[in-house]
């Protein structure tokens, strides 16, 4: 056995014999430095500077307070009406999106998809819908549907559909194939198998995802309303456009409350059904 009298002697013979932790630290530092270098190059490219944010903080705060405070509560009834509409649109688009996504997932899942052409077609469609941001959908569909609640509904439903198709096809892939095989052996038809084996097993998860979809639709309703019309986002867009920031602040307060409540309600219900 070779023994070294001291650490320096070891390092003199094997300069790279750093211990495990030092190696790990070195690797970590190298990766961090690399990321930071890339980030600073990128920051310079887009003109991002972090320092002015801290330096100009007092001025920015005064300007913000002057513009947004005090909140103006004079249009609260109109606001509540639009908030209610937002909730309705969120639930409605989530339901439609989830139902369509469920059937699409049946068509593209490995266990239940039987028609290859349909599988490829729907997979392509869902990928296309999912990977184009909803704001872009709003701008684009505006040309065919015109501004308003209906466009907001379509945009939100598309968002839900794109996301949920992926989630549901994974979910159906994971369902127990034993019951499907057992039903197949009894000679049950395709839709009988779906109704008796796949549907009951996946319903609780699907409903919990539908709740999540409602929540995320309410979250995204601000931006969709601004671009597509309909709901509280539309109102916020108008306030922003006419620079009525005190009214905008009130709207934001109620949107935040709505989102917090929706978040809590959906978490509590999901806890109980799963």
């Amino acid at each position: 056995m070779i023994s070294y009298k001291s650490k320096s002697e070891l390092l003199a013979k094997h300069p790279f014999a750093l211990n495990f932790f030092k190696k790990r630290l070195l690797r970590f530092l190298l990766i961090t430095a690399g990321i930071l270098a890339l980030a600073s190059v990128g920051a310079r490219l887009v003109g991002f500077q972090i320092l002015p944010i801290f330096l100009k903080l007092p001025q920015a705060l005064t300007r913000f307070f002057k513009l947004y405070l005090p909140p103006d509560f004079s249009e609260v009834s109109k606001l509540f009406e639009q908030l209610w509409l937002t909730v309705l649109l969120a639930v409605c688009s989530a339901t439609v999106g989830v139902i369509l996504a469920y059937f699409s997932a049946l068509a593209i899942s490995k266990t239940t998809g039987k028609i290859p052409v349909l599988r490829i077609g729907i997979r392509f469609l869902a990928t296309l819908i999912r990977n184009i941001p909803s704001a872009i959908w709003a701008i684009t569909l505006l040309m065919a549907f015109w501004f308003g609640e209906f466009l907001a509904f379509i945009v939100m439903a598309l968002g839900t559909y794109g996301f949920m198709t992926r989630v549901f096809s994974d979910m159906i892939d994971e369902t127990n194939t034993n019951s499907i095989e057992a039903l197949e052996a009894t000679g049950a038809s395709y839709w009988q198998i779906i109704a008796q084996a796949v549907f009951p097993e996946t319903l609780p998860v699907a409903v919990s995802w539908a709740l999540y979809a409602v929540e995320s639709n309410i979250r995204s309703s601000t931006i969709i309303g601004m671009l597509a019309g309909g709901g509280v986002g539309y109102l916020i867009g108008i306030y922003k456009h006419f620079r009525k920031f005190e009214l905008l602040f009130t709207a934001v307060i109620f949107v935040v409350i709505t989102i917090l409540v929706a978040d809590q309600v959906s978490t509590q219900i999901r806890k109980r059904i799963l």
Partner: peptide
């Protein structure tokens, strides 16, 4: 909110 305080930039 940040645009109100700092103006419209990438930052």
């Amino acid at each position: 909110i940040f645009v109100a305080g700092y103006g419209l930039t990438a930052t």
